[in-house]
Design a binder for these strands. Structure first.
Length: 469
RNA sequence: GGAGAGGUGGCAGAGCGGUUGAAUGCGCCGGAUUCGAAAUCCGGUUGGGCCUCCGGGUCCACGGGGGUUCGAAUCCCCCCCUCUCCGCCA
């Protein structure tokens, strides 16, 4: 959620930001509703003040009169009753007016909130303007010794690559047909070394973040309430991407949602808290199963392990004070962790600065990391794929957009600080999402005979095994 | 799944229709005392919205929402959450 005060002071910044992101949102309407809301609110508040003042006067008077009423009779009684009625009349009128205003304000609320939640965080000034992922800008790329991006896989390695699908089939790493039988399209079952490799990557990534980078490992709920989805900024915009568990209609009270990332649980952790500044920055990592409907992606990446409804992901988040330079520094760090991890796995990758059109509502800045996947891309005349980059990581900077929604604050100046409570800044980044990352691992480390060399760092997690096949 | 109890400030815990945003204790902060500290004493100590001539004004919030009432932390209804016992169970 954006800062309403900032919007009032500088609407153009948000109008411009929404335009750059390609988000259609009627900010003029929002401002009009806001003005009306405040105007009505001010009038209501004045009436309430009057009502409160009268109540304080009336109490004792009423007490006296009801006392008299007990001993009174005849004309006296009637006179007192009339006086009581008169005293009650003024506040009663106020009450009617207040309630009328209350109703008018309430009638504005749904539209107001609907628009407010959809106003995107403006992109940072240094984010390239663009309309889609085609306009993303490459920052840099890296490849291990012996790999030249300028040459084909065959030219690099001396043999034609097999796709991960072929490799999985060859070594019995995944059972796609039975996955589909059980759970429908985009489902799979990791089998044997496939499952072992999957677990090895996840555990390696978690240990790397925990042991080497000082992140605190946490488990998170993946089945959450709607508030957690809205608070973390995934709703309402991404509502159609989340699986909804229908509990309300079967007497469960309320519906639940399956999370598409561990970010929801990690960020929801400190919802509604005022954090001690001394504890910041918070660095959390989790591994969780992620669920995505992939609505709107019908027919896209239907084969293999690339685009699937359920996967596991090691996710990192950082929560810190409201400071842009720190936010940028954390971003660099978090990207650096991933680069180190990919380099240890000897996977070629590139960093992409996402353009404004590719940021989504909640990010001010986002860098995607794509690994080289030899099995992707258009096949040539001989049916050998060209290879292509495929997104494996996404590092976001959100400023206070998310923490504002989550109501996560700190008080500058520490425990004894007198500063105003301030919304924290948050960031998140993938560490490793599997099985998608198995694609470059299998395809890049395949040998001429189809066997796959297991990258060194994963071997301890596979009982020392050095190759598959 | 059945039966019951309860949700009040950082914590503990009063209040159960009328200046109660809330007693009291603990904690915390400031000050006094002290060579210093402990103890003691004094004072302070929730969050948010709106308006502001920046002095301040005003409203909201006692799990959440609605209702009754001139007036609700206190009464009523719905929801959420926690705890205890029984049943079931990884």
């Amino acid at each position: 959620m954006i800062d309403l005060k900032a919007l009032r002071e500088n609407p153009d910044r948000f109008i411009d930001g929404a335009r750059k992101k390609g988000v259609a949102v009627d900010i003029a309407r929002l401002l009009a509703l806001d003005a009306e809301r405040r105007e009505l609110g001010a009038r209501q508040e004045a009436l309430r003040a009057e009502q409160n003042r009268l109540s304080k006067e009336i109490g004792p008077k009423l007490g006296q009169l009801t006392g008299k009423l007990k001993s009174a009779s005849g004309d006296d009684k009637a006179a007192i009753e009339a006086e009581v009625a008169e005293i009650k009349a003024a506040p009663a009128r106020l009450k009617e007016d207040i309630q009328a205003l209350e109703q008018r304000i309430a009638s504005l609320e749904p539209e107001f909130n609907e628009i407010l939640l959809r106003v995107p965080l403006p992109p940072d000034a240094d984010v390239p303007v663009g309309t889609s992922s085609d306009d993303n800008v490459e920052i840099r790329r890296w490849a291990p010794n012996g790999w030249d991006f300028g040459k084909s896989f065959e030219a690099n390695r001396g043999f034609k690559p097999r796709t991960h699908i072929e490799l999985c089939e060859m070594h019995g790493l995944v059972d796609f047909p039975r996955g589909v039988k059980i759970a429908g399209s985009r489902s799979y079952i990791l089998t044997g070394d496939g499952m072992r490799l999957h677990q090895a990557v996840l555990r390696f990534a978690l240990d790397f973040m925990t042991n080497e980078n000082g992140f605190r490992p946490l488990s998170v709920p993946v089945l959450v309430r709607e508030e957690a989805m809205t608070g973390t900024g995934f709703f309402p915009a991404g509502r159609d991407q989340a699986y909804q568990i229908n509990e309300a209609d079967r007497g469960g009270g309320y519906d639940m949602f399956l999370t598409g990332t561990g970010e929801v649980g990690l960020m929801g952790l400190h919802q509604d808290e005022i954090l001690d500044e001394a504890t910041l920055p918070l660095r959390y990592v989790t591994v969780s199963t992620c669920f995505r409907r992939e609505a709107g992606a019908a027919g896209k990446d239907t084969a293999g392990l690339y685009r699937i409804h359920q996967f596991d992901k090691v996710e990192q988040v950082v929560i810190d004070v409201a400071d842009e330079s720190k936010s940028r520094a954390h971003h660099r760090d978090m990207i650096g962790f991933v680069e180190t991890l990919l380099q240890r796995l000897e996977l070629p990758y590139r960093l992409l600065q996402c353009c404004t059109g590719d940021l989504g509502v909640k990010n001010a800045d986002m860098v995607d990391i794509e690994c080289w996947m030899p099995g992707r891309g258009e096949p040539d005349a001989n049916g050998v794929p060209s290879g292509a980059f495929g997104e494996t990581h996404s590092a976001s900077r959100l400023y206070d957009y998310q923490c504002r929604r989550l109501n996560m604050r700190y008080r500058p100046g520490g425990e004894t600080g007198k500063g105003p409570t301030t919304f924290c800044y948050s960031l998140n980044n993938t560490v490793a999402a599997s099985p998608r990352i198995l694609i470059p691992i299998l395809e890049m480390h395949q040998n001429a005979d189809g066997s796959v060399t297991i990258p060194e760092p994963l071997r301890p997690y596979m009982n020392g095994q050095a190759r598959i096949g």
